[in-house]
């Protein structure tokens, strides 16, 4: 019985499972407001409350808000609210680790749908070269620094209130998310001050790049996502992990070639057991594309929940008995 369930899971059609999970989470987080669902404002995904129907809010919003309090207040009692916020964020995060990105983030899901659109038009995806990849993948840390430092600078009075929620102003999710409920009002430049004007203009450019970029490049924005960088800091505490058994790996590169995020370590690193990298969105496509038994596995509390298997690989790659002419 147990092994049957295991086979069923290991042989699953991951693409389908993911599609439906993403659809459900998308509806939940984007339209949850219609059903009066409110999951709080510490979600580890880009569930953007600029979209009025969102069922919760991205943690970067309260984080920026809290950090922008005057330094005195922040170092006094208000510091507690920062800690409580962070703990709530971690509470959500540890359940799914980076799978929040691959399975629950509406902005991530939206990019996958753009990918689907491109695919159905018969257009091939683009990739970065290794050099570009290494440079670009650092940008998310710069953005994370903006999320953290700009509010702190406001708190000490170095920046004025026009800088409030500075990251949100440049974040493409602020502009894209409201569109899901028909609100196009974020496609605008705020002329109230020079700072606001510059930031919202950058935001418009980023949103444009987001749409064009994710059409040609799988998960284009995730490379730059500061939430992803924040995740990575805490990822080793999560209940679910992506693991690798290097001794079983032949470094064939199958996992690497299907990886939306072009993470090379997944194929080449045969010494780390925890193979989760900062760019990973834990979509588990690598596990699904690995032809070696148990070389890659997704663990819940250190128990293998979904493992790579030869059989599962063959099913997912559509390998079946061919119809050919044989001499008898």
């Amino acid at each position: 019985m147990k092994s049957k369930i295991k086979d069923l899971i290991n042989n699953m059609n991951l693409a389908k499972v993911r599609f439906w999970t993403q659809l459900v989470t998308f509806v939940l987080f984007v339209y949850g407001g219609y059903f009066a669902i409110d999951l709080g404002s510490e979600l580890p995904i880009f569930a953007c409350p600029y979209n009025g129907e969102s069922a919760g809010a991205c943690y970067l919003i309260p984080l920026q808000h809290q950090l922008s309090m005057p330094a005195k207040v922040l170092l006094g009692g208000a510091g507690i609210s920062v800690i409580v916020g962070l703990l709530t964020f971690l509470f959500w995060f540890i359940f799914l680790n980076k799978a929040w990105c691959g399975y629950a983030c509406p902005i991530g899901t939206f990019q996958d749908w753009l990918t689907w659109l491109r695919k159905s038009m018969g257009i091939r995806y683009s990739t970065y070269t290794q050099n570009q990849f290494e440079k670009l993948s650092k940008i998310k840390y710069i953005l994370l620094a903006i999320v953290l430092l700009v509010p702190l600078l406001m708190g000490v009075g170095a920046l004025d209130s026009d800088w409030s929620a500075a990251f949100c102003k440049i974040c493409p999710a602020r502009i894209i998310s409201p569109m899901f409920s028909g609100d196009l009002s974020q496609w605008a430049i705020d002329f109230s001050s020079i700072t606001a004007m510059v930031l919202t203009s950058i935001g418009m450019i980023f949103a444009g790049l987001f749409l064009a970029g994710s059409f040609v490049k799988k998960r284009f924005f995730c490379f730059f996502c500061p939430m992803s960088a924040l995740h990575y800091i805490f990822s080793s505490f999560a209940f679910v992990q992506l693991k690798k058994d290097g001794s079983k790996c032949t470094r064939c590169g199958d996992c690497y070639s299907v990886c939306d995020m072009q993470i090379k370590d997944i194929a080449d690193d045969v010494t780390s057991t925890n193979i989760l990298r900062d760019d990973c969105i834990m979509c588990l496509k690598c596990v699904a594309a690995c032809p070696e038994d148990d070389a890659l596995h997704f663990d819940i509390f250190n128990v293998k929940a979904f493992s790579s298997t030869k059989e599962g690989f063959e099913k997912r790659m559509g390998i079946e008995k061919p119809k050919g002419d044989r001499d008898e």
């Binding site: 018969g122 091939r124 995806y125 064939c252 590169g253 070639s257 299907v258 594309a289 790659m317």
Partner: peptide, 22 residues
């Protein structure tokens, strides 16, 4: 026989590249 071909998007170019990788 040991190593297999995995393809993400089944376009001709992707298949050829995956084959090369294998």
């Amino acid at each position: 026989f040991n190593d297999r071909v995995a393809v993400d998007e089944w376009f001709v170019n992707d298949m050829v590249d995956s084959l090369a990788d294998k």
